[in-house]
Design a protein around this nucleic acid. Structure first.
Lengths: 97, 97
DNA sequence: TCAGGAGTTGCGCAAAGACGCAAATATGCG
DNA sequence: CGCATATTTGCGTCTTTGCGCAACTCCTGA
């Protein structure tokens, strides 16, 4: 049985998801991850920012539950955790475009 | 013919839409407007904030193209400008919940 | 014209966010 | 263990954002 979240708390969490999407670099990360998992340094290179900065952006996305990680040796691979997010991204783009 | 937006600019605009949705009070506004148009003071009362604050939130939403206005005398009515936004909101909630 | 309700705008402040850089962790290997 | 590579964390700074309050604009009705 799913506990029903109070309306207000749900709004806060919903806003938190939106906030996680409210940055161009993070959207760029999503575009890249849509093609498959990537390491932090991969993403840092493809998005064009420093590794620590990328790590922080990824932390925001992970906290929001948008991405998930897999560790392989000393490398951490990130992937999309929820495919719904791509649909949201697509709709946002449509509204934006 | 639609001009095609450069990827990067589109990302910026997409992030801007997400940012406009990244606040609980503004989400509350959307919920209310989903039922029909409302004046600024209506919204201010239903959402529970001061009128100037509401006016600023509405300004954010209007700049993002999410709401539109209609003036009737000294009263300004706000309404949803793009029904797509409700679909986005629904999906965001789903990811959040 | 003037009083008053309805909105908007300007200002100051506190909290949150983004970013670069340095330092700390973590993992694998010789 | 000691070193190198991959990531994360901490810190200082600058910008952005949300909010309350006061001032200002608009419109309407006496």
């Amino acid at each position: 049985m799913e506990a029903t979240l109070p309306r207000e708390l749900l709004r806060d969490r919903t806003a938190a998801i939106a906030r996680a999407l409210a940055d161009p670099k993070r959207l760029c990360v999503l575009e890249t991850l849509a093609e498959g998992e990537r390491s932090v340094s991969d993403l840092s290179r493809e998005v064009g920012c420093q590794v620590p900065n990328m790590s922080q952006h990824l932390s925001v996305l992970r906290t929001a539950g948008i991405v998930a990680t897999r560790r392989e040796g000393s490398t951490v691979f990130y992937r999309l955790a929820d495919p719904q997010v791509l649909e949201i991204y697509r709709l946002l783009q449509q509204v934006a475009g």
